[in-house]
């Protein structure tokens, strides 16, 4: 029974990691790649560490597996947020099909609609202040 649960968790975790790998290659711009990589890979790592916990079933191993899982779940969003903010401030281009850029509007606070701001100003990164 334990073996079956472990096997399922390992395969599901591996599948999520593979999805993250496909996502980071196939997605069109940095921010989409990042969401594919961060979320899917975090869930995959969580599944695989849970598989370790189920397989060994000892207190010390389960504790360490839970510790690593909690650590990955806490740090992955923080790291992704930091890269996203840094990449945005550097002016990494968005995908050309992007229709809304809410972060941009929040910084401007000039009351333009989301669609107009993003396509017009994003097309010309040099026009952005700062």
């Amino acid at each position: 029974m334990n073996d079956v649960v472990t096997a399922v968790l390992i395969v599901v975790g591996g599948a999520f990691m593979l999805l993250a790998g496909v996502g980071i290659v196939r997605m069109p711009d940095l921010f989409m790649r990042m969401q594919a990589a961060t979320k899917a890979a975090t869930l995959g790592a969580g599944c695989m560490l849970m598989a370790v916990a189920v397989h060994f079933g000892e207190l010390t191993v389960v504790t360490r597996a839970l510790l690593v899982t909690a650590f990955v779940f806490l740090t992955a969003p923080v790291a992704a947020h930091m890269i996203a903010r840094a990449a945005y401030s550097v002016g990494t281009p968005l995908w050309k099909g992007t229709i809304a850029d809410e972060f941009r509007c929040e910084n401007d606070r000039v009351g333009q609609s989301a669609g107009e701001t993003s396509t017009a100003q994003r097309a010309n990164p040099a026009a952005r202040e700062k």
């Binding site: 790998g21 980071i24 890979a41 890269i83």
Partner: peptide, 12 residues
């Protein structure tokens, strides 16, 4: 981002 992903995959 790719390096971060490699790190997480290494954990798995």
């Amino acid at each position: 981002v790719a390096l971060d992903l490699i790190g997480i995959i290494a954990v798995g």
